[in-house]
Amino acid sequence: MFLALKDLVNLFNDKQGIQDDVLFRTISDKAAEEQPMGLFVPVNSEAGELLEAISHGAIAAVWDKEKTLPRYTPTQFPIFFTNDLVEAMREIINLYIEKLDGETNKNMDRTNFKISNNTLLNKNNQTYDIAGQLAKLLTQNNQERRG
Rank of each mutant, 00 (worst) to 15 (best):
P70D: 11
T73W: 07
T68E: 10
F2H: 07
T73K: 07
G57I: 14
I79N: 01
N44K: 12
F24A: 03
F113Q: 03
N125C: 04
G132M: 10
L39Y: 06
V62D: 01
T82G: 00
D20I: 08
P74Y: 05
T127P: 06
D64S: 09
I79M: 02
G57C: 12
A53Y: 00
E103M: 07
G132R: 07
K123G: 02
S45W: 01
V86E: 08
I92H: 03
F80W: 00
G102W: 06
E52C: 13
F40Y: 14
N118Q: 04
T68D: 09
L100R: 11
P70T: 11
N118G: 03
L11V: 14
D64L: 11
F24H: 04
Q19M: 15
H56S: 14
M37V: 04
R25N: 10
T73D: 09
I18L: 10
K99E: 11
T26G: 04
N122G: 07
E49T: 15
I18S: 12
Q133A: 09
L50W: 04
N94Y: 15
Q35C: 07
D84W: 02
F12A: 05
N125G: 14
M108T: 12
Q133H: 10
K15L: 02
N10R: 13
G132Q: 05
E144D: 14
G48Q: 15
P78R: 00
V86A: 04
A88N: 09
S55Y: 11
N10L: 12
Q143I: 03
P36R: 02
S116R: 10
P42W: 05
R90P: 02
G57E: 12
E46A: 15
T104Y: 05
Q35L: 12
P78C: 00
